[in-house]
Design a protein around this nucleic acid. Structure first.
Length: 286
DNA sequence: AAATCCACCAACCGCAGTTGC
DNA sequence: CGCAACTGCGGTTGGTGGATT
């Protein structure tokens, strides 16, 4: 049975939001808080799909949204994070306070991708790491490129495919060689976390991360002393995870774990990339 | 001045993961 | 446990405005 559409589109407004609609949405959320997006439009008197309301709020109306140009520091951080995470825009956005995933995605697609190409260092847009990092690369799911091609028909932009192939030829310039990335499907943190302060764990806290490889998953529980970056005298990074008890009953998971260890070794050998390594660890865990 | 091209970005779409019944 | 609703994510589209021809 197919999935029902998120909402009836009959009679709903689409396209750009008017100031009046914005006001209605802001007022409602200020009064009732975020969430319940499905029922929000009706309650707020909006003729919009709940999804559209959520998007508008998340990407534009939230009070903590940072407006204005991306600073050079942010620019640099986006490039570094993208080299580690691929197109995981929400994760990247999570490292840039006030920036939205949509904004970063747009910035990447319009500015950075061109700049990196012109510099001949488009390591981030074509290598296997990025492909592996995308959750859309999972078996059985069509890539965006494929979907786009289907939508546009058979004459769709052969140049794009050509360009893609040409880019693949530049893999040798890729600086960072990570094993295929894993996807952290869920993360549960107990104990106090003082909002973005990575050193804010109290004693006796535990961290539970679930890492999945598509066919299996492993739970890993860390004591507070194991949490990366916790120890002020020594920057452990993800190496703290080595002691975790990953089940090896699943061969995919075993492989995944090996790759994970390899990642740790490779990255630790290169102190120049220590920052990227730390960022990677941080982003994967939070 | 008009037509065309191009860059930008808000918004949409469809899918997958999570949650609740 | 299975199903459906809800939520979030990433890829893509299309409108708009500025630049160029």
């Amino acid at each position: 049975m197919g999935r029902a559409p998120c909402c009836s589109k009959v009679g709903l407004h689409r396209g750009p939001w008017s100031p009046k609609e914005d006001d209605l949405l802001i007022n409602f959320i200020q009064a009732h808080g975020e969430g319940k997006w499905r029922s929000l439009p009706q309650k707020a008197g909006l003729l919009r799909c709940g999804k559209s309301c959520r998007l508008r709020w998340m990407n534009y109306l939230r009070p903590d949204i940072k407006r204005g140009n991306i600073s050079p520091d942010e620019d640099d951080l986006i490039i570094r994070l993208h080299s580690l995470l691929g197109n995981r825009w929400s994760l990247i956005a999570g490292r840039l306070p006030g920036r939205t995933d949509n904004e970063i995605k747009n910035y990447w697609n319009t500015h950075l991708i061109k700049r990196l190409r012109s510099q001949g260092s488009d390591k981030d847009t074509n290598d296997d790491n990025v492909k592996a990092k995308s959750k859309f690369n999972l078996p059985g799911r069509k890539s965006g490129l494929e979907k786009s091609r289907i939508r546009r028909g058979s004459n769709w932009n052969d140049n794009m495919m050509k360009e893609k192939e040409e880019n693949n030829g530049e893999r040798g310039k890729t600086k960072i060689h990570l094993p295929k990335a894993i996807r952290v499907t869920s993360l549960r943190l107990t104990g106090n976390n003082d909002n973005n302060n990575n050193t804010g764990f109290e004693s006796n806290t535990t961290t539970t991360a679930t890492i999945s490889s598509g066919n299996g998953s492993a739970a890993c529980t860390l004591s507070d002393r194991d949490v990366p970056w916790h120890d002020g005298d020594h920057d452990h990074g993800v190496e703290s995870l080595i002691g975790c008890d990953f089940s090896t009953s699943d061969k995919h998971l075993g492989k995944l774990y090996e790759e994970f260890l390899q990642l740790i070794k490779v990255e630790n050998q290169d102190h120049d990339d220590q920052d990227q390594f730390n960022l990677c660890a941080e982003s994967l865990l939070f």
